[in-house]
Design a protein around this nucleic acid. Structure first.
Lengths: 251, 251
DNA sequence: CGCATGTTTCCATAATGTTTCGAAAGAGGG
DNA sequence: CCCTCTTTCGAAACATTATGGAAACATGCG
């Protein structure tokens, strides 16, 4: 069997192989090219409505060649999301700052929401696949759990410090992260709708505005003294505004 | 063409027809039977991973017979959701009560969230389909828009009355309704996970608890004086607790 | 009773999409 | 120049959605 799981494992791009029919310079490894193409397509047409043939031709390959790199279609989906969801690092760094829980939670929520808005993949699709095939998507669930734990811990710290109202920390963390994703869902639909068809008609919002508004709203529902929100916002934003931009060059 | 769109239109179950191979008493019309079967399957395996054959055999039919009642798979999905999403009536009634905007919004959010939690269908799937084929799902978008308008109006009234803080009413309404759906998404996953597999492990929450918590959290983020929340909760719940229960017998 | 009509079901098959299999086309080393 | 490794391709197996037409029943009318 030539196809174990990961071709190119360490020796990346060592030797030839049959030449492609579609000749065209490819930026990066074939895997990257495929994921890039798939990302564009998934994001505009959704996972289910994107065919392997489309992905292939967008990546300069024939359909069946994709299976040399990815054993199943779902693995491409997982790859698009893994690339897109970078924020765990940011979150760990933020979580460890010597600031109040409010400031840290604000930053965390704002960043995560922003990431979701600009991310190429639909969280829902990934989650649904992930729920159906937990083994294939193990890494996804681990990340998700870790993210949850961070948020839960922050909320607990806020309560202990008298900054947040007493509430169920687990439920609150679940709410914060899933509301998040619901908002991404809406935000993406807003993008997908062509101006002509107008099923939904709303003003367009910037990802940053959405992220900030979400962080504020969430914090406001937790704070014992909502008036402290102004200070939190100020401190949080002073800590580095540019952190919002993702490392990943999405189209 | 025998298959216009709606068989049985008014004359429901008047005469015979070829007998089924799978003989078994059916409760209600064939349509209802089909929708019931589909609902169960969609809710446990998702729309994309449920085949027409499965739906058919669960409804005591052969695959192609489904097309006598529904022209496309998506229409079954729409039907499952239409049945499940009853709350527009409730919302209109609530919206017109002579109470403060806070009380009415509280009730509306609590009810809608509860409905989503106990609903059989995944909103996300419906929305995705609906976004892709706006013509097929016209009624869905109309309901959605109407719901949004109600919420937006309530928020505006709250602001005008000095009960809510000044904020972008459109964005707020969008947030309230989409967070909602994100929470349903999580809530459903929680159910779908078998106890053995345990990818996610959290305490189990009741739909009513989730709905109440969501309504409180949302209100708290809007109120000028969070201390008024206690009164709002009390008044809202006095107005009729039993309204939460859906008319529709799910499962 | 036999036959036309209408209703509901099934079977067969086209059309489309995913996945597997094995062969083909190059590079590089002995 | 041949052998091996890597990458690509084409054909075919399989699964799923959707269509068209025939089959199986009830009913009413000659």
């Amino acid at each position: 069997m030539s196809n174990g799981s990961h071709p190119d494992e360490r020796t990346s791009r060592r030797a030839g192989g049959r030449p492609r029919e579609d000749q065209r310079p490819l930026a990066g490894t074939p895997q990257e090219e495929i994921v890039r193409a798939a990302t564009r397509l998934f994001s505009s047409k959704g996972f289910a409505n994107t065919t392997m043939s489309e992905i292939a031709s967008n990546a300069g390959l024939k359909q069946s060649s994709l299976y040399y790199y990815f054993n199943r279609k779902e693995q491409i989906l997982l790859a698009t999301f893994t690339v897109a969801r970078a924020p765990l690092d940011f979150i760990k760094r933020t979580g460890e700052l010597p600031e109040s829980a409010g400031v840290r939670l604000y930053r965390l929520l704002r960043f995560d929401t922003y990431q979701l808005c600009v991310a190429a993949s639909h969280v829902n699709e990934v989650e649904q696949m992930a729920a159906l095939q937990p083994d294939q998507f193990e890494s996804f669930w681990e990340d998700r759990q870790e993210l949850h734990d961070w948020v839960e811990r922050l909320v607990q710290q806020g309560i202990d410090a008298g900054e947040f109202i007493a509430t169920d920390v687990t439920l609150t963390a679940l709410f914060l992260l899933s509301s998040n994703e619901g908002i991404q869902n809406w935000y993406r639909h807003q993008e997908a709708h062509r101006p002509g068809q107008a099923t939904f008609s709303f003003p367009e919002y910037e990802a940053e505005a959405v992220a900030s508004h979400y962080a504020e709203t969430s914090l406001r529902s937790l704070l014992v003294r909502p008036s402290s929100l102004a200070r939190i916002r100020r401190v949080a934003l002073l800590l580095g505004v540019d952190d919002l931009k993702p490392d990943f060059q999405s189209k």
